[in-house]
Design a protein around this nucleic acid. Structure first.
Lengths: 339, 339
DNA sequence: CTGTTAGCGCTTTCAT
DNA sequence: ATGAAAGCGCTAACAG
């Protein structure tokens, strides 16, 4: 493709291919004079090494695969930003794959990457994923993998997460502190560790405050923002005692907000809302919406950094390298909004 | 990496490497019996062809590069979704590169891709890009390229855009129709065709309505949401006659909204806002914000489709394949909000 | 310091 | 219908 290759360079310079190769790779066994000559001509002719030839020979691709459920979601977008940046700095390329929250797709993708196309994998598991057999294969093949945000607890690789339990606790505590006693808990993926931990934080905060937990307040949303809004709205109408909403996912925070509006509840006078959201817009537009912000960009960077360190030093990636980054409680409303 | 390769399969089956290769590629010159035998063992052993070996030999990578300014932006996120989907359907892989709106990075990335790593490129140019020399090289190398959203008018490849002029006109018309006469125009990248077209729509709408254009109402924002808010706020305070805001970019629509709040202007009673935004959240959260929604996902799909058609049929990608997709004016407020 | 040679794993003529 | 052999472009022993 790039028209000019090593052989041509070698011929033009009357050198052997290996000398040229070594000169370009700045090998210590090539004279400074030759190096210069070679590099000069190489840049003149715009020589670009064929990545596939060297990948084949070196048995490494300088490429990582990123597998995520969806990219139209601010958390993952920001994470990709972090990942791409670190990759670039380390001379790596980034292949992107989307599972669309579909387990079968996730399996296929993982399997497709187990052929040397990538040197390592960064993954946030799909909402449907329960079985971890496909990850076992990655270990077998010794393909370094780092989980981020939505981790798979069954395998023993490194993972970068947010302080899900803790932030779930804090969020609930925040509402309790403001007088809420009947807090609706909105969640999507109950069987994902991320959902479970957030909910456990919610439950423990209630318990520590001696507030009874009512299972009726546990709501599992689905996909489709209008559907969720209707669902919450219905529950609000059924139970006027509800005075708080804790949404474990951004989309559900919005749904909760809209449902409150639809039922005429005033925020924060009648009801208070707190929700996970990585969308700065959300609280910029609407300060009455208190949010839990995950350090998405940092998570991407951290996950990538751990992966690359393992790759460069050719060391296995250990569970001990796992980290839990802190999320932030963002309260915008100065005028006693929800804050 | 994947441990098992053609040679091993061949030995195990007592066949030649070429036969096995052909069998797996479903060649017509292999007996049905052999094919079956081969394919059976291949799946049993979990054979995965080495992508780099076949890329090297075939001189094609089954990979496309996507170059965008940023991914933490709903438009590009959605576009990637569309691109990835189409790529997957066609057996292509997607490499992601971010320019961070930086021209130098864009040049480097483009140059790095001109070595056979990708079979084609999908690109949305950085805000700084004025010079198109680096794209000329792509043409030289015959590397199929499709521009999307932020196109480069100097080259003659296909491009997928939104109806920027038209939507700029319609947005402005919308405000004029509601009585606005002093409409502030907020823009980021004035020299990008996308910014120019939107502004031209604005100007023409004013002219057609016989409303004088005041250059003082033209505001060029920068990066940093707080900075932009302060800028707009200052202008609003200086000029109380301003009764409308047209934001050519989502972030500026938010800045405008916040500035209005800060200066005590009521929306839409005192001032009306309309802005480009691909964030459904924005108008869900705040129905008084009328938005122009681009068909981001469709743009991604369309751009990718054109690229792949060219790649598969080995045909050049022509300007004639360019398309302009329609954007949508989203008015949420039923209660006479801004709508 | 430089050249010769082998080979990464696959595809594809060319032969049989 | 199958096999032998060449070669994609590069790197890395091994010589010298």
């Amino acid at each position: 493709m790039s028209s000019v290759n090593l052989k041509q360079l070698a011929q033009a310079l009357d050198l052997s291919v290996s000398t040229v190769s070594r000169a370009l790779n700045d090998s210590y066994e090539i004279s400074a004079a030759t190096k210069e000559k070679v590099q000069l001509l190489a840049t003149q002719l715009g020589y670009q090494p064929n990545p596939y030839a060297s990948s084949l020979r070196r048995q490494q691709s300088k490429t990582v695969g990123v597998i995520i459920p969806e990219v139209a979601n601010n958390f993952f977008s920001l994470a990709i930003n972090g990942i791409e940046e670190v990759a670039r700095q380390n001379g790596y390329h980034v292949l992107i794959y989307l599972t669309h929250e579909n387990f079968a797709q996730e399996q296929t993708i993982v399997q497709h990457l187990a052929n040397g196309r990538v040197d390592g994998i960064l993954i946030s598991v799909s909402g449907e994923t329960q079985d971890a057999a496909h990850f076992a294969k990655l270990r077998e093949l010794n393909l370094p993998t780092v989980f981020f945000d939505r981790v798979c607890e069954q395998t023993d690789t490194a993972s970068i997460t947010t302080d899900d339990y803790d932030s779930g606790y804090r969020a609930t505590h925040h509402l309790l502190e403001r007088g809420c006693r009947r807090i609706m808990h909105l969640t999507l993926a109950q069987h994902l560790s991320i959902g479970q931990k957030r909910m456990q934080g919610y439950l423990d905060a209630l318990r520590d405050a001696d507030v009874a937990f009512d299972p009726a307040l546990l709501v599992r949303g689905g996909h489709g923002s209008d559907h969720n809004t209707a669902l919450v709205q219905q529950l609000l109408e059924q139970d006027p005692s509800i005075d708080g909403i804790f949404a474990a996912v951004e989309s559900l925070a919005i749904a909760g907000y809209r449902a409150c509006q639809a039922t005429g509840r005033r925020i924060p006078a009648d009801i208070k809302i707190i929700g996970f959201s990585n969308l700065e817009m959300a609280d910029l537009l609407n300060p009455s919406l208190t949010t839990i912000r995950q350090p998405a960009y940092a998570i991407g960077r951290e996950a990538a950094t751990i992966l690359f360190q393992g790759l460069m030093k050719n060391r296995p990636i250990l569970t001990s390298q796992s980290q839990e980054l802190k999320s932030e409680l963002v309260v915008r409303a100065s005028t006693g909004g929800l804050g």
